[in-house]
Design a protein around this nucleic acid. Structure first.
Lengths: 259, 259
DNA sequence: CGACTTGTTGATGTACATCAAGGTACGTGG
DNA sequence: CCACGTACCTTGATGTACATCAACAAGTCG
């Protein structure tokens, strides 16, 4: 029914810092807001190291508590929950610039897991410094809230999908959504991108069986709005796909935090 | 398929303050953390008035932007989204102590609507003062983040429900979830409570049709774990219901903010 | 040493039969 | 009139089974 969970959880053993914050790869992205010098200094101090993980690694694990928070510098992951009998629901995907582990600062233990889809480079923050961020850097605190609220928006949209969209609309919406997020951070070239997930992931995201996902996906590609073969995804007709997905262009975000 | 949307949006016309913050009805709830004098003073200044709305009123409306943030002092509401053709998905319910409208501070316009289920008393904050809260009251800023993160947790759980639980498990889980939230804030007496929503709301929350919701609900009540008649809900066998719902006791929250 | 088989595994594609869920219709009771 | 209850038929989704295809490892032979 669902893929088996990979057992090995990442043991965070922050190596010495490699990339100084002033040279953080994320800083080039024009979709992120700029830091001032003071903020940059704090963040540099906030950062305790980096973590490199392989596909299939569990960065965070349901029912445990991690001492770390992570910002994704590169790579893809997904957040998911499982029922005791193994049924799996993928909640959302995480891309460069996304922030992982906030829930652990608010509850005693994680209510979901995070698994890497590709090789990832993570920026590691010790959780106990989060409070210092709130007391000294309200702009960064607001960024954290911004990220939490954006995650909430995505979940709302997902809930609408699974609850009320048809299977065709669901798949179209998910592919479009991920494409647009990837485009926002510069991962798309010539309307094409490498998608690191399989049909099983799509099925587990949309609450569908693998077989039905496959059939619906064939029907979707038959519309010639998208191509998806050997991990390579191409958006052929954006407007038509938006139509199929019942996509209402969501509100622009004023700015996007850096952290 | 889904209930029709009520047209009238609430026009916030903050009347003069009625309840001074020191006497806020929420302060008695032992599930909320205490304010210190300084925080209380700020919040009293933050508050611009109160708003009283009737059942069916749209407190916030998708695709608009409200100049206000609200804390619920009393009453029930629900957050929902609609597709252009009218399909409705209820995302979550809002109870006393919950905070409404944060998304509007992060995006240009609301991505969802909020409709009152009962008479409600709302505490009104002007949105532009939110930044002052972040700069001067990090503890309150953290509370806002706490609330956003808790909302995210609930949405995660909902997504798991709709995506992977059976219809029986779904309904059991929803009823249990709402019962426990109501219990947390002292709305439950003798394992019984008035639920202000209908089967149509349950259907729209769980992504099911009304007819199927009704049939499944009959099967659930046949298990004698709950009673639900004329808006009165009674929890007869808590453990058995948790079993049916595949409820994994979620982590305790260390504290709960007041705002 | 390199080239060619063989077996394995994971992702995808497709054909059924079965079942859960939807839609319409028409009840009741307050 | 609205919320709830139930019957009936239809359809969308599931589960099982099996086939294809590429990637990869191990072993064999010239």
């Amino acid at each position: 029914m669902t893929a088996t969970m990979l057992a090995a959880a990442a043991v965070p053993h922050p190596q010495g810092r490699k990339v100084p914050c002033e040279k953080c790869p994320l800083r080039d992205r024009e979709c992120l807001r700029d830091f001032n010098a003071k903020e940059l200094e704090f963040v540099a101090n906030f950062k305790s190291g980096e973590l490199n993980v392989e596909p299939g690694t569990n960065v965070l694990l349901q029912s445990t508590n991690s001492a770390h928070l992570y910002t994704i510098l590169s790579g893809w992951a997904f957040r998911y929950k499982t029922l005791p009998d193994g049924r799996r629901q993928i909640l959302n995907y995480a891309l460069p610039g996304d922030f992982l582990g906030l829930q652990g600062s608010v509850a005693d233990e994680m209510q979901h897991s995070v698994e890497a889809l590709t090789d990832m480079l993570l920026c590691v923050f010790p959780r106990e410094k989060l409070w210092g961020l709130y007391t000294n850097y309200p702009s960064l605190a607001f960024d954290v809230t911004w990220l939490a609220s954006r995650e909430e928006q995505i979940l709302d949209e997902n809930l609408l999908s699974i609850g009320r969209r048809t299977s065709m609309e669901r798949i179209a919406f998910l592919l479009l959504h991920l494409f647009l997020r990837a485009e926002e951070i510069g991962l798309v070239k010539n309307d094409a991108i490498q998608f690191p997930f399989t049909q099983q992931h799509v099925a587990d995201t949309l609450g569908m069986s693998l077989v039905h996902t496959n059939k619906t996906l064939r029907r979707l590609t038959a519309t010639k709005t998208v191509r998806w073969k050997d991990r390579k995804f191409e958006l052929v007709n954006r407007e038509a796909l938006m139509e199929i997905a019942r996509y209402s262009p969501s509100a622009q975000r004023a700015r996007r935090p850096f952290i």
